[in-house]
């Protein structure tokens, strides 16, 4: 890589990230605004009360109404920001996700962990999860892998024992056995 591309690339990346953020905001807040309009209409069905001027639906409708206005305001603001950014630069959503792949991988592992827990039970599911995430985050070989196994065993089984025996908080025992 020569000097010219080196100096040129950071602002370019910045612009595409700004553009991506603005576009994401437009989509995200438009969806939210639509959702809140729907909920606003639904809140109209909530019963009113004969004892008070405001029924069960009034406060939520007040909040939802304000939420719709604020979300539309953010949509307008982001749309203006979107027009100011360079049209040529790509949004770079793929790269955005790729850069944060470890974060998403960790969250995905957390999902699998939650799905497995009713079957495997807290202790075993935690042990596997702890090991898997440490491997994902770089404990691949040698001493670090050994430490990872140790941490997984100690915390997976230890937390289960601590909470079920000391704090008397029951955790899923598992359905398979």
């Amino acid at each position: 890589m020569n000097d010219a591309t080196d100096t040129a690339s950071p602002p370019g990346r910045e612009a595409s990230s700004e553009r991506g953020k603005a576009l994401a905001n437009v989509i995200f807040n438009a969806v939210l605004a639509a959702l809140f309009v729907g909920l606003f209409v639904q809140a109209g069905d909530l019963p009113s009360s004969m004892w008070e001027p405001l029924g069960a639906g009034s406060f939520p409708r007040l909040i939802l109404g304000a939420l719709v206005i604020f979300n539309l305001a953010i949509v307008v603001q982001s749309a203006m920001a979107l027009r100011q950014t360079d049209q040529e630069t790509s949004v770079g959503a793929g790269r955005w996700f790729a850069q944060r792949r470890l974060a998403f991988a960790t969250l995905a592992a957390f999902c699998v962990y939650a799905l497995l827990m009713p079957w495997l039970g807290f202790a075993l599911a935690s042990l596997l999860f702890l090991l898997a995430v440490q491997v994902i985050l770089g404990a691949r070989r040698g001493r670090r892998l050994l430490i990872a196994c140790l941490v997984a065993a100690v915390f997976g089984l230890g937390l289960y024992a601590l909470f079920s025996h000391v704090f008397l908080i029951s955790l899923p025992p598992g359905r398979l056995w």
Binding site: T106, F110, Y113, A114, M117, P118, F122, S126, F129, L130, V133, Q134, L137, G138, A139, R144, I147, A148, V151, F155, G156, L159, F163, I169, S170, L171, P172
Partner: peptide
Amino acid sequence: KSIIVPVVLVCCAVGALALNNRITDL
């Protein structure tokens, strides 16, 4: 962090389960 993050995530799961022991809370 490769040790901290998963261990604390497991603690988060314990926290979510502690109140009602409902897997849906997780």
